[in-house]
């Protein structure tokens, strides 16, 4: 089992509409992958299936060295297995400080009783401070995250994702609302992360993907249309048809 995540033959339909149609997908333990596709191609639904939010009608989703099925697990269990997700719209806990957000995301025992008695050690606080520096929020640790700008919230969410220390990162449009410099920084963080873990990026911005320099999977109408390097994929006639319209 070389693949970290193996999705095979997955289909799901909502009221007759096939959002995912016999989709198969694989990613290794330390690999970067970009997923592109026009609107309605099933990118978000694909992430919903992997994270357990949506249960597919048919197909298998296997995870890890032992090939365990994710379909029987709840969202929280899947997250604890090491799959982290960054949403398209930044979703952080706005009533809580940056530090609280990061502490909550730190990889620790998630059980209610353990959490009840848990108090951060100095090592934990150092780790949070380091993360904050990496995402440029070191000066904002005590601020309520609701007061951060849109871009800062994106950063905080990336920080939370890193704090979880997942084995697979699912990142949905990370570059939206970022300055070019910030995009570059994001790229650097993701490329760095992909050295030790799997990263799946969903993005519309081709320039951003080009910088990631990784394999690209094109989704269309719920199944894989093409896969390969960005150059190969963009040269594919089918892909051009889909993007430009027939």
């Amino acid at each position: 089992m070389s693949a970290l995540l193996e999705v095979s033959g997955v289909s799901v339909s909502f009221d007759g509409f096939k959002a995912i149609n016999n989709l198969s997908f694989e990613i290794g333990a330390a690999e970067m992958r970009a997923i592109i596709g026009p609107n309605g191609a099933g990118k978000t639904t694909f992430m919903d299936i992997v994270t357990g939010k949506t249960k597919p009608d048919t197909g298998r989703v296997l995870w890890g060295e032992f090939g365990r099925s994710l379909l029987a697990m709840s969202e929280a269990q899947i997250a604890r297995e090491g799959i982290g997700r960054k949403f398209q719209k930044p979703t952080v806990f706005e009533d809580q400080s940056v530090q609280e957000n990061l502490l909550m995301a730190l990889k620790k025992d998630r059980g209610p009783f353990a959490v009840l008695f848990w108090r951060p050690s100095s090592a934990d606080l150092d780790r949070v401070a380091a993360l904050a520096r990496e995402i440029g929020l070191a000066d904002h640790l005590g601020r309520k995250s609701g007061k951060l700008s849109h871009g800062q919230k994106q950063w905080l969410e990336i920080g939370m994702l890193l704090a979880q220390e997942p084995r697979l990162l699912l990142v949905d449009e990370p570059a939206v609302g970022m300055t070019p410099a910030e995009r570059e920084h994001t790229t650097a963080i993701l490329v760095e992360a992909a050295k030790t873990r799997a990263v799946v990026v969903v993005e519309h911005d081709m320039e951003f993907i080009r910088r990631l320099d990784c394999r690209v999977t094109v989704l269309h109408e719920g199944s894989v249309l093409a896969e390969g390097s960005l150059e190969r994929v963009t040269a594919n006639q089918q892909v051009i048809d889909v993007y430009l319209g027939r």
Partner: peptide
């Protein structure tokens, strides 16, 4: 403590708490 953070997180955005791995 963190328990408070988690339950306030549940109040404001239950799904997000779930994706952080909290039951």
């Amino acid at each position: 403590g963190k328990f408070g953070s988690v339950i306030r997180g549940i109040r404001d955005n239950e799904a997000r708490v779930r994706f952080l791995g909290y039951s």
